[in-house]
């Protein structure tokens, strides 16, 4: 997310924060700004026409962008947790890169949500100041990382399904959502390829690596179906995810077959009275994730750097 813009009077003469001095130093002799943050250019939809097209309901569009934005944001946070913990440096860099893509998508989608509902809430307000029940992500992305194979399995499921959804949304009537999706298709293709390659390598490796990979798949598989259960908002916005169930399952089955793994038969994780992540009903894993993600912003409201 971006810097928080200072409240009026928040950084007076007595504020000796070194980075404030840097960001407010003004143009250098050659006319280049020294540091972009705090210069007003951090809006991810800077100058983009954000008129909601006729025929689309702004509240529905906002709710839908929150769903997809929260999926991306929460999974970005989980991927970031691998930093300093991944099995190899290259994998750590890879997972952080995937998280960065998702974070960028989340910034665009949350910004779009705050505009489309007329609330004027920015990305930071939506990311840092909503409570757990206000998050609209599916439960798949909030599940703890588990071991590397669990994380690969989750990424395989998410990237395969999200890439398919973005291909659909690239033709959506909302031009901002369509542009985010069109960009995201190619990014998700790299994510899917990464997760597929590791699934093959672990599944087709030693009996031990295959068992660990299978255990990861078995653990996350019950969370897959929620991605295909349409919410009323998704139906009204013209993005019924149930059409993706069959092609995504077919793709996953082909990967697992090649990897020598078994498609789990576990039943989908039950919803609570018909309500799940899209309605703000989450597992116990989301609260601690958000606490860590939001603590700095909440401890220093309005802080800049």
């Amino acid at each position: 997310m971006t810097d928080h813009h200072a409240m009026p009077g928040h950084h007076g003469a007595g504020d000796d924060h070194v980075y404030l001095a840097l960001s407010e130093a003004g143009p250098e002799p050659d006319g280049e700004a020294r540091w972009a943050y705090g210069t007003g250019f951090s809006d991810p939809l800077l100058g983009v026409d954000t008129t909601v097209p006729a025929g689309l309901d702004g509240a529905d569009l906002a709710a839908y962008c929150l769903m997809l934005g929260d999926d991306a944001l929460v999974l970005a946070q989980r991927l970031t947790e691998w930093c300093t913990r991944a099995p190899e440096l290259e994998e750590e860099v890879a997972l952080a890169n995937l998280g960065l893509d998702l974070l960028g998508q989340a910034r665009l989608l949350l910004t779009r949500a705050g505009q489309a509902d007329g609330s004027g809430r920015g990305e930071d307000e939506l990311a840092y100041w909503r409570e757990e029940h206000e998050f609209r992500n599916v439960r798949l992305v909030e599940a703890p990382n588990g071991d590397f194979a669990h994380s690969v399995a989750r990424l395989l499921l998410f990237a395969t399904a999200r890439g398919a959804l973005y291909r659909l949304l690239a033709g959506h009537p909302d031009p901002v959502l369509a542009a985010v999706a069109a960009r995201g298709v190619l990014e998700l293709a790299y994510h899917q390829e990464y997760a597929t390659a590791w699934t093959l390598r672990l599944g087709d490796g030693t009996p031990y690596s295959a068992a660990r990979m299978q255990a990861g798949l078995d653990a996350v598989w019950p969370l897959l179906d929620e991605l295909f259960v349409p919410h009323a908002v998704e139906l009204r916005i013209g993005a019924d995810p149930s059409a993706l169930r069959e092609p995504v399952l077919r793709t996953l089955a082909a990967v697992l077959a090649e990897a020598g793994l078994t498609v789990p038969e576990a039943r989908p994780l039950a919803s609570v009275g018909g309500r799940a992540g899209r309605d703000g009903v989450h597992t116990e894993a989301l609260g601690p994730l958000l606490a860590e993600f939001q603590v700095v912003a909440r401890a220093n409201p309005g802080a800049t750097w």
Binding site: A33, G47, R183
Partner: peptide, 29 residues
Amino acid sequence: IAEMAADVDARLRAAGYPDVRVRLRLDPP
């Protein structure tokens, strides 16, 4: 991208354009 936008803005102002707007274009990617 934020730094790119700030740099373009600053260079154009330094070149004598007083009224500069930097905008993002997402489509085509």
